[in-house]
């Protein structure tokens, strides 16, 4: 389909409410003798932001790598339900997961195409749709209208996302020359250009200042509400996690120790002990609180 983007409202109406978008069952990953993930199961739903949190080395990124096919899990079933079709991700090659199951991801250390322009980054993400339109390059080689229209549509979709992430005026910059925060948002936009049903974000707020972090929250809410897709989020920044997540999963040493709403997880004694420290629950530093208040005030 080469629409600008699917109308989110239609998609939601069609979605089967009871089937989870993603279900992870008994996921286990061993590297030699090291057990990175130990029998973890959880679900993620459409129109929800599911956060995976946990101390460093808890196995969060490994979960992502299993979901997106970069690692083959030792044991486990990873089922993705895309419009009623089930995909068993653990059996699929990495690029097929993105291509067929429509799972998109970002990386902890940003992986843009640094020597290509911002716009090109977003158009490359629409590779498969454009390849079909260019009939494996042949229609494109002769400049047929069919291909030219598809390219125009791809550029328009890129423009849509560039406007959302406020980078339209830098579309022709080399991606590698953007400031750090812009690169993070561009990577998310690039992932969205693949029309995913599940978006996996690996520490999107890392290295962002509080203002950028708040902007990111806005963007993620927009993606969830307007595009109706599921978002899976690894994050250390509690201001992001607690504010926007619908559902939080806590990992520690490769095991799941808690699973529930942000409020429930926040008060879970196991979590407090393992992750947030012995007695103190998560408290936002005062300057962030001030910043957030100022921001919401300004918008209202």
């Amino acid at each position: 389909m080469i629409g600008l983007f699917a109308d989110p409202r239609v998609a939601t109406a069609a979605a089967a409410a009871d089937a989870a978008l993603l279900s992870v069952e008994h996921l286990t990953m061993r590297f030699g003798g090291l057990v990175a993930i130990d029998d973890v199961s959880f679900h993620a739903a459409r129109r929800e932001i599911t956060a995976i949190i946990g101390p460093n080395g808890a196995g969060k990124t490994t979960v992502f790598n299993c979901l997106t096919g970069f690692y083959k899990p030792t044991v486990g079933r990873l089922t993705l339900n895309r419009e009623g079709t089930l995909f068993y991700l653990e059996r699929m090659e990495d690029f097929r997961i993105a291509q067929e199951a429509h799972v998109a991801r970002t990386f902890q250390n940003i992986r843009l195409f640094p020597a290509m322009s911002v716009l090109e980054n977003l158009v490359v993400a629409q590779h498969n749709a454009l390849m079909r339109a260019s009939v494996m390059t042949f229609a494109g080689l002769f400049g047929l209208k069919r291909y030219r229209d598809a390219e125009k549509a791809a550029v328009e979709k890129a423009r849509y996302w560039l406007e959302r992430i406020n980078l339209a005026d830098r579309a022709d910059w080399n991606a590698g020359n953007l400031p750090y925060g812009d690169q993070r948002r561009l990577e998310i936009a690039r992932a969205m250009c693949t029309e995913p049903v599940l978006l996996c974000l690996d520490e999107p707020a890392a290295g962002l200042n509080p203002r950028e972090s708040a902007e990111l929250n806005e963007l993620l809410r927009f993606i969830r509400d307007e595009h109706g897709i599921g978002v899976l989020l690894i994050e250390h920044d509690m201001s992001v996690v607690m504010e926007i997540s619908d559902h939080v999963i806590v990992l520690d040493y490769g095991r799941k120790i808690a699973d529930g709403s942000p409020e429930a997880v926040r008060s879970d004694p196991n979590v407090i002990k393992a992750y947030l420290g012995e007695d103190e629950a998560d408290e936002l530093p005062p300057e962030i609180v001030a910043d957030l208040e100022q921001k919401t005030g300004g918008e209202a």
């Binding site: 997106t68 096919g69 970069f70 990495d94 690029f95 097929r96 997961i97 993105a98 291509q99 067929e100 998109a104 991801r105 990386f107 992986r111 843009l112 195409f113 640094p114 020597a115 290509m116 090109e120 490359v124 993400a125 590779h127 498969n128 690039r190 992932a191 693949t194």
Partner: peptide
Amino acid sequence: EALREDEIACRSLG
């Protein structure tokens, strides 16, 4: 060109 820049990112985009 994208492959030249970053193969892993390419795979993540299908």
